[in-house]
Design a protein around this nucleic acid. Sequence first.
DNA 1: CGCAGGATTGACTGTTGTCAAGCTTGGTGG
DNA 2: CCACCAAGCTTGACAACAGTCAATCCTGCG
Lengths: 246, 246
Amino acid sequence: MNAETYLPDTLMIRKLGSLFPLDEEERQALRDLPVQVARLKPDQSVVQIGDRPRQCCLVLAGLTCVYKLSYEGRRQIMALHVPGDMPDLQSLHLEVMDSSIASLSPCTVGFIQHADLRRMCERHLRLASALWRETLVDASIYREWLLSIGQRDAYTRMAHLLCELMVRLKAVGLAEEDTFDLPMSQHELADVIGISAVHVSRTLQALRADGLVQSRKMKVTILDWEKLKQAGEFDPLYLHLRRGEA
Amino acid sequence: MNAETYLPDTLMIRKLGSLFPLDEEERQALRDLPVQVARLKPDQSVVQIGDRPRQCCLVLAGLTCVYKLSYEGRRQIMALHVPGDMPDLQSLHLEVMDSSIASLSPCTVGFIQHADLRRMCERHLRLASALWRETLVDASIYREWLLSIGQRDAYTRMAHLLCELMVRLKAVGLAEEDTFDLPMSQHELADVIGISAVHVSRTLQALRADGLVQSRKMKVTILDWEKLKQAGEFDPLYLHLRRGEA
DNA sequence: CGCAGGATTGACTGTTGTCAAGCTTGGTGG
DNA sequence: CCACCAAGCTTGACAACAGTCAATCCTGCG
């Protein structure tokens, strides 16, 4: 199951279909979208805060993030995007970017012109709803992350993040039974859950010591899903998947 | 300028109009929406996590919040909603509520049936876009709050929150030149910015001691807007207001 | 084989949390 | 009109989780 083998429309259909039932006509409309494919190295910028993009980005392979910097230069990663996700779908209706988007790992992305998406939305109201719904699920994830960062300790937050990635990657068929790729450094993980890189190291060690996960290099294996879910206070409700996954 | 004197449609037009230009036909469509008005005492529930509402809520007066609880019972308030806002607009496209909504102060709210909103969206595509846009601005605020909670210290977060409320209330005409109502306790403020109630007290004292704000009872007066903005690292870009307010 | 980036470890610091006690204040009822 | 109560705010002492700094250790890659 290699990400590189997916066509853009297949992935998008799979992703939107995981949130919303699509009929054949709608699938065809998605297939008809012109997509310009590009490859990115790690840490390459996709859009910057302040930009006024005329296109949306669709992740085809790899991992991208949405982030902002505080005045002291501290970075908060507000969202992670896996294949099938559209990290800047919001730009379809918000002129100016309020945050930046960059690749974390080597990525393949597709660009779709706003004009083409708008035309598709006008012709297929249900697809417009599906895209709206995708942005609403993003917002739901923000809410869950706010709960995590605001109220849970580092150990719980880390467990929660691993659970979320497992479920999201499985939803697009990019995780094995208990293992998935996590192509990011501990420093980047730190920027996601709002703790220091040193503390990420200690937290992962604690999770390993407790026998919940195994993490070597950029691969994570979940050894005890039930215990990890409990440790992370993880309930997939907020992901709004059609079948109550996990 | 009394909130109680606004009609539901006037407020909604004002709010959507602050994000998106509306023509007369669209304004009329908003006026034609049937709205059922209700009054709420403080701390009353509007919708609960897990519910499947058939209507959306529109805040007409007072302050509501979106929140979740961690397993240990700690509450994180993920969003505040002022008159003109629709706290559960997402429920139009996400069946199940992933968080709860409650009043913080005494409130007047209007309920609008999903069916009526959907009909309006089908007939007026630009209004559908305006509503979509409103949910996207909510998401943008979540991103900014994630940055705050994840990377900024308590003092900065508090300053930032006060700046945001000032700008948002001014956008709907509910703030005086330098003063606005903040009808919530320090304990509730603590749940918003993710610190303890004791620390809220200390943080507000520091802001007062530095001559940035004055806060008596439930009223906040900003004594030095420029310094407060700087202290809070506040840039209103993320609110996506049409005229670059503040 | 050596280098560079990332991960780990230890020692120390600091912001924020917790607990518990006092202090205001506004509302209520005698 | 005043006393009293409850809720909320303030204060101080202490604890704890997480941050910082710096040294060391891996490990993949050239």
